[in-house]
């Protein structure tokens, strides 16, 4: 089923941090990882994230499950960059017919692979620990994001877990009416496509009805909305941002000192 399986309890410290603070921290870290071109900076950032992990209240097993695909993606990036490097620098490590991989190119590839790891881990840390309602509340209250767009998006997000149920309903209805792909791959593909289409049309139809339901409750008026749930920037939230900034600065500093830093 399509739900965001949480990687921590609702009372874990990271789940209670202000979502905007978490987003800012993650933005800081990932931008640094994007800018830095060496292998040491992302490695240090990754290490920093691993160090804070025990203090966040995140459970290890679901986190590992979430991060599993990451290694695959990181691997791809390493291979592509190494194989198609503009020039194979360093000692040639491997030759396969016309293809050769040099140590320099491989190291550059690894740097990029680490960049993927930083991005993915940071993404899980913020998104898998944030309740969408809290995120929308914080976006409107702290960042003054336009409430109609944030709340509208939040309402649409509620449909996410329903998509799977909707899919089941459509296929059940088709079975009841005698439509089924069976073993014929062509028929199966066509039915799959038409089920997808039905799902999409159903989603747009729902959007219209949801919009009507929201308007009926006074959503689209000029009155400025109030907020039932307050989101605040507490000292701890500022600390999260400061910590991220500190870690990013330290990683860059170490890497510069070690002489590996490039952009």
């Amino acid at each position: 089923m399509l739900t965001f399986a949480p990687v921590c309890g609702p009372d874990a410290p990271i789940a209670r941090a202000n979502p905007v603070a978490k987003l800012a921290a993650v933005a800081l870290v990932t931008v640094v990882a994007l800018v830095a071109g060496d292998w040491l900076t992302p490695l240090l950032l990754l290490a920093a994230m691993l160090i804070v992990l025990p203090f966040t209240g995140i459970r290890a097993r679901p986190l590992a499950r979430r991060l599993r695909w990451l290694w695959l993606a990181a691997g791809t990036v390493v291979i592509v960059n190494a194989l198609f490097a503009a020039e194979q620098t360093g000692r040639i490590l491997l030759t396969l017919g016309p293809v050769a991989i040099g140590s320099g190119a491989l190291l550059d590839g690894v740097a990029i692979g680490l960049r993927v790891c930083v991005a993915a881990t940071a993404g899980v840390l913020v998104f898998a620990t944030t309740d969408p309602t809290d995120l929308a509340d914080a976006l409107t209250q702290q960042l003054k994001a336009p409430p109609r767009f944030t709340i509208g998006s939040l309402a649409a997000l509620r449909l996410l877990p329903l998509l799977g149920a909707e899919w089941n309903q459509i296929t059940t209805a088709r079975r009841a009416r005698g439509l089924e792909g069976g073993w014929n791959p062509v028929r199966r593909t066509r039915l799959f496509a038409s089920t997808m289409f039905a799902l999409l049309v159903g989603a747009i139809r729902r959007a219209g009805r949801l919009a009507a339901a929201m308007d009926a409750r006074g959503f689209d008026t000029e009155i400025p909305r109030t907020h039932a749930r307050e989101q605040r920037m507490r000292p701890g939230d500022w600390a999260v941002i400061a910590l991220a900034a500190g870690a990013a600065a330290a990683a860059v500093a170490v890497s510069v000192a070690a002489g590996t830093f490039t952009v």
Partner: peptide, 16 residues
């Protein structure tokens, strides 16, 4: 301005 149905349609498309 955007109508609510415009916002919701974009958002629901995005979710799908």
């Amino acid at each position: 301005r955007w109508r609510t149905v415009d916002i919701l349609t974009c958002a629901v498309l995005a979710v799908a």
